[in-house]
Design a binder for these strands. Structure first.
Length: 300
DNA sequence: CATCGATGTTTAA
DNA sequence: TAAACCTCGATGC
């Protein structure tokens, strides 16, 4: 699930169902008990995503979640909640039992199943967080330190002269973010494939978007980042922006835009013919992750 | 029922 | 470079 698109959907979902009202927070599993106590009864004011990080602001405190490889939120609630949560973050569902409510009129949730790191509850429903790599309460200094290490996120751009990209952050346009991306690439000698996985270069790209964007741009994944033609690097940024936006819209990564079951051009298609040139798609290990590409059409 | 692998990152060596 | 983190669906026997 979790490349950047997932976190932006989650932020939107949390804003829809939780923001502006006091919530209840607990840690059924126990590993987030102290943090849950600090958040319990507070008002979540605004959720935002930056790359693969989710931040929920509650006054000066910030709840930070990073899903890592297999973390996930699940949303459940009564019919009102399910109707409201139509964005459909990963694993949204209406409860199947007949809902009952406590003395304050809050839905009584199901007992947690498995290892639930954090449970956040609203009046009509709740969300369970499992398996995150990070779940922490930050003060403003710590929050700043996290975002200082993140490169531009294509999903955080604003129209020129418009809006806000975060509570205390300067809003940047597409052109400004793209320029930062090009600058970051120009300062690294690692391959473009390695650079796309570096969240300080561009935030929100993971292994699937890496493979699929390089394929569509016909880029050799082993080209050194600082030798990439600036125009092709700009086109790569634009391609990733388009792909991430599609991911937000659809709730899943589908880079093959034609109808049919096939979702990816090269990701996990090693050993089969390229749909564009017929060469056999390859896979190789690169800095600890599997890289997929077509040696036929991804060449300089 | 056991094992493996995954859309990720940090830390240690 | 490897291990650790810690969850779950897919696969194999």
């Amino acid at each position: 699930m979790p490349e950047g698109h997932t976190l932006h959907r989650l932020a939107a979902q949390i804003n829809t169902v939780f923001a502006g009202h006091p919530w209840r927070v607990s840690s059924p599993q126990g590993r987030f008990s102290a943090g849950a106590e600090r958040l319990d009864g507070q008002v979540p004011q605004h959720a935002e995503a930056w790359g693969k990080h989710l931040f929920v602001h509650l006054g000066p405190a910030v709840w930070q979640v990073h899903l890592g490889l297999y973390g996930a939120f699940s949303f459940r609630g009564d019919a009102d909640f399910a109707a409201e949560a139509t964005i459909g973050a990963p694993r949204a569902a209406a409860v199947t039992f007949e809902p009952t409510y406590d003395d304050d009129g809050w839905l009584i949730p199901e007992p947690p199943k498995g290892a639930v790191r954090a449970r956040v509850s609203a009046r009509h429903g709740w969300a369970d967080l499992r398996g995150p790599t990070t779940c922490a309460v930050l003060d403003p200094t710590e929050y700043q330190a996290v975002i200082d290490r993140l490169g531009p996120d294509p999903l955080r751009q604003v129209m020129p002269g418009q809006g806000e990209s975060g509570p205390q952050l300067p809003a940047q346009t597409d052109a400004e973010l793209r320029a930062t991306f090009l600058h970051n690439l120009s300062r690294r000698r690692i391959s473009i494939a390695a650079a796309l996985m570096d969240q300080a270069v561009i935030a929100g790209v993971g292994n699937i978007y890496r493979a699929e964007s390089l394929f569509l741009e016909r880029l050799d994944p082993y080209t050194p980042s600082n030798q990439l033609d600036p125009e092709r690097a700009a086109a790569l940024w634009d391609r990733l922006t388009e792909q991430l936006r599609d991911g937000v819209d659809e709730g899943r990564i589908r880079t093959v835009r034609t109808r049919g079951p096939r979702r990816h051009w090269v990701y996990k298609h090693q050993g089969t013919p390229c749909q564009r040139c017929g060469a056999v798609i390859e896979a190789a290990e690169l800095v600890g992750r599997r890289l997929y590409w077509c040696p036929g059409c991804q060449r300089d």
